[in-house]
């Protein structure tokens, strides 16, 4: 990947061409198979990952091995390296949900760039604070919204960021198993099954093995906004 390719990552667009070249030289091209770990919670400081294609889940696992999915970055997004300055264990894991390609900047090179290049420093701080705000929003949802609203919010967010308009509504790839939808909404698989069936019965969305079609976006968005606690 050259500097022009890197400039397609929204978060990196502000970087001057010379810095993009410097960054492109230092990043490794990597491919990940479905289910392969990019980095693990509790491990060393994670690298900075720029996702080129495929999908990845960022998640946290409890001592009882229950999983909370924190984010589903899209191609074109960057993540990782947030605890660079703490030298503390990585706070979450990243695993490929489907075959993925990514550019990876190891922590030691990330540190050098942060210290030596002010423009990169600002871009990286921006990336970390964006992730922080996303986690704040997740805490808000988990604390104040019920499971129905949380599942609606997941579908609405995915429809907004990756949905394709059809004659009937907005279609998204199913991407996650029912267990993984449970892990993103902090509930059990059976509850996801019941909630999705309710959405289908009420004409809000229809589900196939491969796709989810959102047929009443505004109503689903209204459900997603409701705070019950």
């Amino acid at each position: 990947m050259d500097a022009n390719g890197l400039a397609q990552f929204a978060a990196l667009q502000k970087l001057p061409a010379a810095v993009l070249c410097q960054l492109a030289d230092q990043m490794d091209r990597r491919r990940f198979q479905t289910g392969e770990s990019l980095f693990q919670q509790g491990g060393e400081v994670s690298p900075l990952v720029a996702l080129q294609s495929g999908r990845v889940k960022l998640f946290r696992q409890s001592r009882q091995e229950r999983v909370q999915i924190l984010a589903l970055p899209l191609p074109g997004e960057c993540f990782g390296g947030e605890t660079l300055a703490n030298d503390t264990p990585c706070p979450y894991s990243a695993t490929a949900l489907q075959p993925a390609r990514a550019l990876v900047l190891p922590p030691e090179k990330l540190r050098q760039l942060v210290l030596a290049v002010p423009e990169f420093q600002e871009v990286f701080l921006n990336l970390v604070t964006t992730r922080l705000k996303q986690f704040v929003t997740l805490v808000h949802d988990l604390a104040f919204r019920d499971v129905t609203a949380r599942l609606a919010a997941v579908l609405v967010a995915r429809a907004q960021s990756e949905g394709q308009r059809t004659n009937h509504g907005i279609i998204i790839e199913r991407l996650l198993s029912q267990q993984e939808y449970a892990e993103i909404a902090g509930t059990a698989r059976e509850v996801v099954y019941r909630t999705f069936r309710k959405f289908e019965q009420e004409g809000l969305a229809s589900f196939t093995r491969e796709t989810i079609e959102i047929t009443a976006f505004e109503t689903l968005a209204e459900i997603a906004r409701q705070e019950t606690h």
């Binding site: 696992q61 605890t83 706070p91 979450y92 988990l142 902090g186």
Partner: peptide, 13 residues
């Protein structure tokens, strides 16, 4: 960020 990831895990699981 580590604190928020931990809190998300706590609230969700």
């Amino acid at each position: 960020l580590a604190q928020l990831a931990h809190l998300s895990e706590a609230l969700g699981t």
